[in-house]
């Protein structure tokens, strides 16, 4: 069944989009990731204009992070003070990211820049995950457990000024690193329509040294607002949020996430991770193929949006 999308101005198969939402929701339930990094490239590959894919992807991330946050909040796993600080940098990052998308759309470079950025991020994450799962698999087979525990040493981060106390995270650190991390995540959200979990989670654990327990909840909490702001900024600057498209994705995503969370309890971690890694690399390869293959026509035409 075809459905017409008022902002993308094209007609898509409702079941394809719903299936895409469900599949990505399933993966996000399975791995606890936002899934934004798959939604946007998949939309682009199915013929949705890049700006609409990014803006609508950001909108869908709001839905998935809200339901995840409620669960984390009820478990007391959100450091609201840290989240708000991350957020303050994130809003500025998102605002700039959206302006970059606006500029790229005007100069006609948006599809290529966004594809290249996705190729970069998806390939690096995919490879890292693949290497890690192979290592875990080998270690389990060999039985030789290597302990790679970090010591609680102070790093240069702890020498910075503007120190604040974060009770829930049991930290006393400078406000500068969280603001900068938030800013970078906001920038990525604005340009790529992703929640940025794959950047912020390692940054919180390794740079800020936050306890693992509060990391996911705090990340989800700030993602709600960053992707919310990104959605509004995209709606205002680029008229690129397609509510019909977003809604189909959200419904699919919410249902898929539930099945994913259930399946995650039955399947083995390293196999799952290897599977996700291969999927991510597959999307990346497809983008590379599209970037490198000779175009059918040496020209493209484009009708700029006039608001």
């Amino acid at each position: 069944m075809q459905i017409y999308l008022p902002i993308a101005e094209t007609s898509v198969n409702i079941f394809t989009i719903f299936g895409m939402g469900t599949a990505v929701g399933f993966l996000s339930g399975l791995f606890g990731v936002g899934g934004g990094f798959l939604i946007t490239p998949l939309l682009m590959l199915s013929g949705i204009p890049a700006a609409v894919a990014v803006a609508t992807g950001a909108n869908q991330v709001v839905a998935s992070s809200v339901s995840g946050s409620i669960t984390q909040w009820r478990r007391g796993n959100i450091d609201f003070k840290m989240g708000t600080l991350l957020l303050s940098g994130g809003i500025i990052g998102a605002l700039i990211g959206v302006q970059i998308v606006n500029y790229l759309a005007e100069t006609g470079q948006i599809e290529i820049v966004i594809s290249l950025l996705y190729v970069f991020f998806l390939s690096s994450i995919g490879l890292l995950m693949l290497v890690e799962s192979v290592q875990v698999w080998r270690r389990n087979r060999g039985g030789a457990a290597r302990s790679a525990r970090r010591s609680g040493q102070h790093s240069w981060i702890h020498g910075l000024p503007l120190k604040l106390r974060f009770q829930r995270s049991k930290l006393y650190i400078s406000a500068i690193p969280p603001i900068i991390i938030g800013f970078l995540v906001g920038l990525l959200s604005g340009i790529l329509g992703i929640g940025g979990g794959f950047i912020i989670l390692p940054a919180m654990i390794y740079l800020l040294r936050m306890p693992t327990k509060v990391v996911i909840g705090t990340s989800l909490f700030q993602v709600i607002f960053i992707s919310g702001f990104t959605t509004v900024f995209h709606a205002v600057s680029n008229y690129a949020v397609d509510l019909i498209l977003a809604f189909i994705l959200m419904v699919g995503g919410v249902i898929g996430a539930q099945f994913g969370a259930n399946a995650g309890q039955k399947l083995r971690g390293e196999q799952l991770r290897a599977f996700l890694a291969i999927l991510v690399l597959g999307v990346s390869l497809r983008l590379i193929y599209d970037l490198m293959s000779t175009p059918l026509d040496p020209f493209v035409i484009h009708v700029p949006i006039t608001g």
């Binding site: 909108n59 709001v62 809200v66 339901s67 919310g228 509510l243 977003a246 919410v254």
Partner: peptide
């Protein structure tokens, strides 16, 4: 758009 997303998340 954000309100609809938040609501469907809830």
């Amino acid at each position: 758009a954000v309100a609809i997303a938040a609501l469907s998340g809830m």
